[in-house]
Design a protein around this nucleic acid. Structure first.
Lengths: 226, 226
DNA sequence: GCTTGTGAAACCGTTCACAGCG
DNA sequence: CGCTGTGAACGGTTTCACAAGC
């Protein structure tokens, strides 16, 4: 396939800036809403409003996927959904293992958007022997000792950690050792991963503390002036 | 005191860049760990490692709070915790109302870090009459109709939305109308808020789709070269 | 000598504004 | 004429590199 041949379309993926990538899922959701409301096409302005951003951002973001708009008209909703899904790799079904089936783990396992967006829960595992065997969201909880097996036989590439903080790093290491290359961490702790493993985190306490900062700032400046 | 006296310390708050603010809670957590491990002082390098960032970032971030380090030595752990807590407004106890007591709401209500970090759940409310009256995490679930009262009498400034997507915007509007000025949204939908209301969101589907992008990218480029 | 605190440089992301095109 | 796609300007963030100071 010569030096640059054979991946005209795929090659684009490499150049989408991280900030744009983070917004594409939001556009996807906004587009679902627009499609349900019967819209066939949408302008950057319309999509921007639905997604809670501004239209320049939408156009810049979409330009990274290619030129799929029509000047004077806008974007075709269905087509755009297709191109964004492509860019995000949502045309294939990714398998996920969820570690930690406590309160939060239960909630995550039961989350409908999991399956509806093309993610398959390949397994639920927990370190607590009392929980092993329990049925959650149609699956049987397995022992943490079987983690590697679940990952291998389930073709798992994404791990979700919903354990207590103290167990998270060990679990993380086990996931990486088993071959998982993307991890979503809900445990309130900082995790270390080797290069090449994508790590994202969701942290209630951090979010609340950021909001606290803004409340505090308002109350300080509000007490004086404007 | 003197020319601009009265808020020598507090005035700093206004100038902390958003990116720094988002990292301060992470430093706080890392510092707890270091304190538990018996460290009295820590260098920017040590804190950086514990927090998963680099040391230049730590120094820049901390410099926004003031000059609390000792050259040649580092920062005193306790003192730093104190200054960061101050900057984040964690010296006062913020009251939170949690709307939506489904699977996720249960998990959030039960989250220990809620209380331990100085946040008080002033009330749990739900729209489902079947859930009203239920005891969750030591609190009685109240009707959504009582939201405004909970906010007012509880001195609530932060609202957490854990409802289904369809209900989130209505709940959000009610929170804002009741006087809440910071909102943390767990519902998988884009919310609109007026200026002056701080909105943050946590979205499992978005996080998974971002990870999907990176997995996809790896599998595409991995198939060809390096 | 070792580490902070910080200007300066490099980088990235956002916004502007308009040429290009349906 | 309206809206996309995009260079160019701008602002914020990260990184560099070193002078200042314990």
């Amino acid at each position: 396939m010569s030096e640059q041949g054979g991946f005209t379309a795929s090659a684009r993926h490499r150049d989408i800036p991280e900030a744009s990538v983070a917004r594409l899922p939001v556009y996807l959701r906004a587009l679902s809403g627009l499609a349900d409301a019967g819209h066939v096409t949408v302008s950057s302005e319309g999509l921007a409003t639905a997604a809670g951003v501004n239209s320049a951002k939408v156009r810049k973001d979409l330009s990274h996927l290619g030129s799929y708009g029509t000047r004077g008209v806008g974007y075709e909703v269905d087509e755009l959904v297709h191109h964004i899904s492509n860019a995000l790799g949502l045309t294939q079904r990714w398998s996920v293992v969820l570690v930690g089936v406590g309160n939060l783990g239960h909630a995550l396992a039961g989350y409908a958007g999991f399956a509806s967006r093309g993610f398959r829960i390949a397994g639920l595992v927990d370190a607590d022997p009392a929980r092993v065997g329990e049925r959650v969201a149609g699956l049987t909880v397995r022992s943490i000792d079987e983690l590697a097996e679940v990952v291998t036989t389930g073709g798992v590439s994404i791990g979700v950690i919903a354990t207590p903080a103290g167990a998270a790093q060990v679990v993380c290491d086990q996931l990486v050792a088993a071959g998982v290359t993307s991890i979503l961490n809900f445990a309130p702790t900082v995790l270390q991963v080797p290069d090449g493993v994508e790590l994202r985190k969701v942290d209630l306490a951090v979010e609340l503390q950021i909001l606290s900062f803004h409340e505090h700032r308002k109350s300080v400046s509000g007490a004086v002036g404007a």
